[in-house]
Design a protein around this nucleic acid. Structure first.
Lengths: 353, 353
DNA sequence: ATCACCTAAGTGATCGGTAACCTACGGCTG
DNA sequence: CAGCCGTAGGTTACCGATCACTTAGGTGAT
């Protein structure tokens, strides 16, 4: 079929058919001003008959409000960021906003990724959008978004807590809580499988871990090797270990924990008998791992909802309020257990491939 | 800060400063018509200086092309649909398109969900978008999109193969291939853990399974109980079994397989010793399940790319080509093994909770 | 009786671009 | 040297809504 022949109906078409001016139709949609009940009914009938849908591009041109919010996601959509997106999109629908999305691949060089982010921001500004939500941010991204802030409000979900930051997000306690759980079970040699350092969440969780360890007067042990948030990265981190001298591990997220557990099992070590492990996210699969994974359940959908509301607020009032923190309950499952004497980990240094 | 005070620069601002007409700036961006190299350089300098970004809403008004494509997703973003979205967004960036997204919750009544879908489509048409991509469709959604088709091209990624369907997607062979693998291992009592019947993918896979079983002259056995694609649904399906009389299972996706395996393990049955199981998706965690899951790897990112290209083609030429099928290799891991005599499943009917 | 005010609408300008058409100049060709 | 074409760019109308303002009848208070 040739590129659409019938022109889509405009507000003028509707107005003509109802026998009023376009202004009345505009009022019908905006709710501002007076439209009699009778006229309202006749408009509704014509709208339905013609299949009229107002053209947002036209409206926003004059109104200087597009009702569109840009959502920037860094890296592939994992369970968490996908959930955030779901939360955002539910809230957006509720408040009549449209969501424009862009994804930036962080696994390039630092310069390339910054260039990508800049392009994505321009993409949003071109739309144009009323606000930008940065779903997951990378370290060093602040300057890119600072430029965008001169045009539209920017809500950064994972900006690091800094006093100069306009949003001043409260520090998340995920890393601290997870580590505390392990310490309360009696573990003393608690390691942290750190997520990709380029992401702010990974840095936050590491900071929480370090704080909990310092408070307890214990030596931290950070396991490196994760280049992204997926299970193979956790496996790679496990493969790097040639000796194992911890009795508990706090993994940056559930995926990393799974990959890590899987490789340790290959070396004859199982949780919770041989070591304890706790993750973050509580993705739906985590409860079905073997063993079921103790983890911190982050209410990502709620985060998305809060972020969208914050963006709408910023659009309407220009006021940036710090994002409240969603609930983050610890879900205790079978992967963690109290430290027992004679726990093999830390004594044997098995070296299997 | 008060709601932005400085007006964003317009094309006229740039033109004035360069000393040309807006038309020349327009030509600079569109590449249509002649702009001398010298002028080009001066425009670039001013654009950079003012931080000018063309307003797509304004341009599209006259050009009747918004460069925006709507992506409708049905249900929460699971691994597959998130990957499709990633593929779409990468391809969109490459071709300069913007992606508008909306999510529709299918777990309402059939009437409610149809109403939601209609609202989402209107949302897209309001933008307006140049095309709509339906990432995962539900049964019975065709009529909703048929209405949208009168306005813009609609690419439906999971429309069921029907001769009347303008896109006539080729039937996917996922269900058939997975079942064949189990049959080739010697299994005869092969069950299918069917996905949520409301989704077309679930129906397609079931059809493939039934075809393979019929070809082999075997009695099919469909395990019901999954209301979504997540692991808890797989567990629920396992909980419904009071006797187990199969030696192999083809699960609708990896998540379902995981939930199912986890519950059977609670009943003392492990793959591949006691039964074989194969999933679909090859999500990154699947290789780290215990046992690592044999599964069909769907190249979702590729699907997204193809879909976006098809949409762009339809926009430009009005021509709907059927989507080529992405590769779907079988990844053989430890969850499937040849049928052995004396395999316990099918003999014992354990009833543990 | 006059005036203020509410209800219900209409008028014309305008947002920031693009389409279509037009102008001007130089070089090459017949 | 007239005619034609390629290059470089300008002019004007227009896309489809919203904004700011105006009109006009009816009602209640002074």
């Amino acid at each position: 079929m040739p590129p659409r022949t019938t022109r889509r109906p405009s507000m003028a078409d509707v107005a003509r058919r109802v026998g009023v001016s376009t202004q009345t139709i505009s009022r019908y949609y905006s709710g501002q001003g007076y439209v009699s009940e009778e006229t309202r009914v006749r408009i509704a009938a014509v709208v339905d008959e013609l299949g009229y849908v107002p053209n947002r591009a036209a409206g926003s041109l004059r109104a200087r409000r597009t009702g569109t919010i840009g959502v920037l996601n860094v890296g592939e959509l994992n369970w968490g960021s996908a959930q955030i997106l779901s939360g955002l999109s539910a809230a957006a629908r509720a408040s009549g906003q449209a969501l424009l999305i862009a994804e930036v691949d962080p696994d390039q060089g630092a310069e390339e990724w910054r260039e990508h982010a800049r392009a994505a921001v321009d993409h949003f500004l071109a739309a144009p959008v009323d606000a930008i939500i940065v779903s997951t941010a990378m370290q060093g991204s602040e300057e890119v978004f600072a430029a965008a802030r001169e045009r539209v409000p920017v809500v950064n979900l994972s900006a690091r807590p800094r006093s100069e930051d306009p949003e001043r997000p409260l520090p998340s306690s995920v890393g601290y809580d997870a580590t505390r759980h392990l310490l309360e079970l009696g573990h003393r040699r608690v390691a942290h499988l750190v997520g990709p350092r380029t992401r702010n969440e990974a840095l936050d969780r590491e900071a929480g871990y370090l704080r909990a360890m310092a408070e307890a007067g214990l030596e931290p042990q950070v396991l490196e090797g994760a280049t992204d948030w997926w299970a193979p990265s956790g496996a790679a981190a496990a493969d790097r270990l040639d000796s194992i001298d911890f009795t508990a591990v706090f993994a940056g997220n559930d995926e990393l924990a799974l990959g890590f557990m899987s490789r340790l099992e290959g070396r004859g070590l199982r949780a919770p008998e041989d070591y304890s492990i706790v993750g973050v996210d509580d993705m739906p699969t985590a409860a079905f791992f073997s063993p079921p994974l103790t983890t911190i359940a982050i209410d990502f959908a709620q985060i998305g909802k809060l972020a969208l509301e914050a963006a709408v607020q910023a659009i309407e009032t220009g006021e940036h309020r710090p994002l409240p923190i969603a609930e983050q309950p610890l879900r205790i499952r079978a992967s963690t257990a109290p430290l027992r004497f004679g726990q093999p980990v830390g004594h044997t240094a098995s070296t299997t491939s």
